[in-house]
Each structure stands twice: as structure tokens, then as C-alpha cells.
Design a protein around this nucleic acid. Structure first.
Lengths: 353, 353
DNA sequence: TTGTAGGCGTTATCAG
DNA sequence: CTGATAACGCCTACAA
């Protein structure tokens, strides 16, 4: 597969060495702008020239230089997305849905992870801006002032995903974490549990879990019950879950009865508690019901299987991409959207409650 | 047709509206090339001018246009990566390790997924090439002829990840799937199992599982045992696992005794089988040992916990990025690499064998 | 240590 | 319908 045998391949001093639109134009015997028009399906090009151009493109294996095109047209077909982390069970499906939808419309995805650090998020946003992206997506509504300023000044569509709060300017696509807390509490109340505790995330920076806690607390208070929040000190999620279970099921601690149900900030914590309960011979849900959040892959496989709330991860990504494409005029705006930006989470009732 | 620039805010007709290097230079009272040099830390710029430039950058919130820079220098700091899918438990940590390492050196990640389709992979590679990436990473060593041609003609470093086979030209970072099959078979043989079956992946296009099967088969033959491959017809992994378990533990099927150990193409299949065994009251590992591949998050949580083989996912991503950076001269080449490109998988022995 | 000239590959603009 | 010309924002090469 040697490309030295191509006739008339002039070697440039600085260029990438790849065929340019001019090479194609020369080979097809047309002006380079005609090639551009034809390939972009702008304007009109006669069939005859079109065929000649096609042949030249195929012969030279021409791939348009998107950076140059973007520079010229001030319209780059890239979209940046910053997520807290790529490899967790949480955001992966959002990334996938986002990417799939964008790819279908010829956009490329630039990805970065912030590791729940506002500073790293800001760095990522700044780096993205250097590519003049057509739009940007971030996770959550909590950002550094610098990030806010960059996003506001960017002059491009910005979508906040995985969260939804009233009265915010950027496009938001997500669900209400507060509502999830309400949903969880109501589920347990309906099942007859009364001493319901909430276990926070051991990872700092997960502010969404605090919103869920608030929803839980408000619901308990509405029912005349006292909220009970536990903050584990263990770092590793499984350990933190075990720690929380032990602390909350120890009866008469601080004059308080043991919990009969526990809501965990996520399924990892809940799984840690579930395993600990098996070892300790503590019956779930008879002695204490456990529920998580996230519906991770293992949750249906645990014994007892874990009741949890499933956020619409992939859907968030798809709708976020859709809203971006609409803002860019690639997709018609819907007067009456088929799917709203404020999504619902599904409560998945299993054996642990 | 007004040609004269208005003083102060001149509105460009095509530009992005963002501040350019020239705006910074004007504000700082220096030449634009000096700004460029200073920001790239090339050449020498006096401290005084440096300070003035810093101030101007901050005041204008200047972010260099990377597309323009890349176009000019033919050296774009982006790297493309095509993975079969983003959201699975398999490649996410590789993406993360790859991205983290690249980010540390100022490179951006362009991501695409192929869904195990050679055609989609080729499309993604072609799209990436449009960005003149500094390098490209793909998964596996099986590609369409078109992809091979594109990669060969690109003239940039290419890394194949997650697989390793002798005598291939591109940089490879991965492990030997065949060796994994050998490893699994040896483990079961050492534990005394003799009627060992292998269950293929229900997803077509997962060629790496076939390599594992070959390793398994060769090992059994070495020991005078007959390999036994089962190909489930169910699509969903859990269902396929259940189906395989039922078929392989049904005794005297086709004149053959039931399997006393089963190697699954991945942990999803094995988990499906494990759950089915519980429901059927089939003792694992006493009646039949089960093992998977991948060490997914749920595998230690199952009852009995699943013996499996853990591929070095994150490490693959990190080393792949490292090799790319070395090829690009960003990192010194190691005469005696601290970590090799051919990695080992860890056999995680748990309760299911 | 700093500046000038010109080009990277593409597209908007305007003219045929 | 097609083409010449001039940006787009930055960087290499060469001068001063």
C-alpha cells in the first residue's frame, strides 16, 4: 500500500502530506470551490462535474480537513462533553447516547473527565473552547465561577445534564434529585417502614446526593417523622455501606431505635450494606430494608436483589444531543416536544424492601 | 462594502467573535508572534512583555484557536479512539486511562464507538482523519480493508489495544486472548475438573472470545480431553448464560456426560448461569464450576462469588497513550520499558470454582 | 529578543 | 452553474 506511485503528488513543506481539495480539483479539472460545493451539497454542481469529482476523491483517498473548514466557516462540527468520570456505571450510557445521536448528524464528540473537581471541569471547558466547538455539554448545575463565565461568553449552546432545577438559563436535561429522594421515602413509607435513615455518599463533591437527601428529609417531616442522615467516614463505597449499616442497625444508639429502612446515596453503598447484612445474619428486608440509587448492573443480581431507582442515563444523553442539534438548527424545533427535558426516574422494586 | 476597520470594536464578517491572538497583541502592545511564542513557551520573550501579555490574555479571556494552530503547524493535539462501545463495563476504564494520560500532556480525546461493526469503525476512522489527529487508537486487530488502508496511509502513530498477536506492524498494547483461554482451562484442570465446556458470546463480532476458545481447546487437547463448545442462541447475555447452563448440565445429552465446569466468554453470561443455577438448585461449584471473563463490578458480589479473569483495562489505556506520546516525541522512549505492551491478565479465584 | 511575510486547507463573497 | 479572490487565526521561516 505505497502512496509514492501516485503521479503528480507534490510534496509540501509544511502540510500534512494528505491530499487537499486543490489536488482533487486539479485532478478533476475543476475549481476547488466547485469541489467544496459539491461535497457539501451546497449550491448546484452539474452531474458531469460531480462524477469527475467523485472519481478524483476516490483516487486520492481525499478526506476533507475539518480544522481548515471550521476555521474558514467558523462552524466546527465538534461538541465537547465534560463528565465527572467516564468509567463509572453512571455516565457511560449518557456518553453513549449523546455520542450516538451526534454522530448520526455528523458531529464529533470531544470528551473530558473532571473527577468531580470544579477546577478540572474548568480546565476541560477551556481546552474545549480552543476547538471552537458547536456546543458544550456538562454534568450538573454546580460549576466554578470561571466555568460559568467561560460558558456564558462562549456564545454557543450549552446543556447541563443529569440535573434539573427551576429557573436556570442553560438548557437542562435531567431529573430532579430532590424528587428522587421524595420517591424513595414515599416508597418506604408506603411499605410501612417508619424509622428510615439516609446514608450520604462517601465521595465528596457529589452534590446531587444532597438534593436527594433533602427530598427524603422533607417527605419524612411531612409525615411527622424525624429524618436521620448518616455520613460514613470510610472512603471505599462498599466499606462505607457496611459502616453505615452497622451504625444504623445498632439499636438504642443515642437513645434512638435502630433503623428499619435505609436509603443509600447509591447502589454501591447499598451493595456494601447488603453483603455485610448477609455476613451478620441480619435479615433484609425483615429486620431492615435497604434501597439504593442508580440501578447498577449488579443490583438485580444481589441476594436479596436490590430495590433502587433508575435514572434515565441514556435518555439524558440522547435528549441533550437532540436539544443541541435543535439549537444549532440541524433538527427542527418541536413546538410540542415528544420527550421533555425533565425526565422521570423509575423506581425498581426488588426484594430488599 | 466598508473596508476601513472601525476603531475599537470592529465586527468581523466571518470570525467566531472570540478574541484572537492579534487582539491580545494589540492590547499588550506587542507583535502577535510574540504572543504566540510566549504562550507556547517557545523562544524567548522578556519578562516585561510576558506580564503585559498575561494581563491582556486575562482581560480578553483569550483562548487560542487550536484548529487554526493545528492548521498552521500541521500538528494537532487531538487523538482519536474508536471503541466497540463506551458504556459497557469493558472499555470504559481503558478510555479513562487513555484520556487521563493524554490530558496530562495537553492532548484532547476524540471518541467514537463502532458497536463491533467494522463498517462503523471505518466511518469513525475516516471522520477522525478529517481532524488531522496526532495519533489514533483502535480496539482489536480485526479491521476492514478500508480501515487498514486509511490507517496505513495516515502517516501517524496507530495503536491497537486489547489484543496482542505476534508479527503485526502497528503498536499493540494488550494481552493474548488465546493465553487467557489457556489460563482458564489450566485453572479448572488443576482443580480437578475434566468435563470442561466453553460458552461463546451471544454477540456476533466478538472475535476475541474465539481466541480464548482456541486457547481453551488447545489446552484440553494437550491433556487428552475433548473440547466442548456451546454457542447460545439467546441474544440477551443473562438469558444466553442460563440457556448454556441448562444445555451443558443436562446429563447424557448426545451420549455425553454433563459438564462439571464451564468457562463463559464473559462475566455477563456466567452471571446469568449462576442465577439460573440458584433457581434450579444446582450446586456451584460442587455440581458444576462456573467461571467468566472480565471481572465486572458485580462478579465479587454474586453468591457464590464468581471466579474470573481480569484484563488490565485501565493499564491498557495508560500504556497505549504512553506509547503514542513516545512516538510523538512528547515522552522519552524507554530503552527498557518499565511496562511491556504484552500484559498479563489476573485470574481471580473466587467461590464459583 | 522581537517583528515581517507568507502559507496551512477550506469556505464566504462576489463576479462571470 | 462555475470560478477567482480574500479571509479564517495561527505558526514557520527568516530578518532585524
Amino acid at each position: 500500500m505505497s502512496f509514492e506511485n501516485m503521479p503528480g503528488q507534490a510534496r509540501k513543506r509544511r502540510g500534512s502530506g494528505r491530499a487537499t481539495i486543490h489536488d482533487v480539483a486539479k485532478l478533476a479539472g475543476v475549481g476547488s470551490i466547485t469541489v467544496s460545493r459539491y461535497l457539501k451539497k451546497n449550491g448546484y454542481v452539474s452531474e458531469e462535474l460531480g462524477a469527475r469529482i467523485d472519481a478524483a476523491v476516490a483516487q486520492l483517498n481525499y478526506v476533507p480537513n475539518l480544522a481548515a473548514g471550521g476555521l474558514s466557516s467558523a462552524h466546527n462540527k465538534v461538541v465537547g462533553m465534560v463528565v465527572p468520570n467516564i468509567s463509572g456505571p453512571i455516565f457511560a450510557s449518557t456518553i453513549q447516547g449523546f455520542n450516538d445521536t451526534l454522530t448520526r448528524h455528523g458531529y464529533q464528540l470531544l470528551l473530558a473527565s473532571s473527577y468531580f473537581s470544579a477546577e478540572q471541569e474548568e480546565n476541560a471547558v477551556r481546552a474545549f473552547l480552543g476547538w471552537s466547538p458547536a456546543a458544550l455539554a456538562v454534568v450538573g448545575r454546580f460549576h466554578s465561577r470561571g466555568t460559568e463565565a467561560l460558558l456564558a461568553a462562549a456564545g454557543i449552546p450549552v446543556v447541563e445534564t443529569w440535573d434539573y432545577a427551576p429557573r436556570r438559563k442553560p438548557i437542562q436535561v435531567g431529573y430532579s434529585n430532590r424528587e428522587v429522594g421524595v420517591q424513595a421515602a414515599r416508597h418506604l413509607l408506603a411499605k410501612g417502614y417508619r424509622r428510615i435513615a439516609f446514608v450520604q455518599n462517601s465521595v465528596a463533591g457529589d452534590l446531587s446526593a444532597l438534593d436527594r437527601r433533602d427530598g427524603y428529609a422533607a417527605t419524612l417531616e411531612e409525615h411527622g417523622l424525624e429524618p436521620w442522615t448518616y455520613a460514613p467516614t470510610e472512603e471505599a463505597p462498599f466499606d462505607a455501606g457496611r459502616q453505615a449499616l452497622e451504625a444504623l442497625t445498632r439499636s438504642r444508639r443515642g437513645g434512638r431505635k435502630a433503623a428499619d429502612a435505609i436509603i443509600f446515596a447509591n447502589d454501591n453503598l447499598a451493595a456494601g450494606a447488603l453483603l455485610a447484612s448477609q455476613r451478620a445474619g441480619l435479615q433484609v428486608p425483615q429486620r431492615c430494608a435497604l434501597m439504593g440509587f442508580g440501578d447498577y448492573a449488579f443490583s438485580p443480581l444481589l441476594l436479596p436483589s436490590l430495590t433502587t431507582i433508575r435514572p434515565p442515563g441514556r435518555e439524558i444523553g440522547e435528549i441533550a444531543a437532540q436539544r443541541i442539534l435543535q439549537a444549532l438548527g440541524e433538527l427542527p424545533a418541536e413546538p410540542k416536544p415528544a420527550r421533555l427535558n425533565l425526565l422521570e426516574c423509575a423506581l425498581i422494586e426488588r426484594e430488599s424492601t
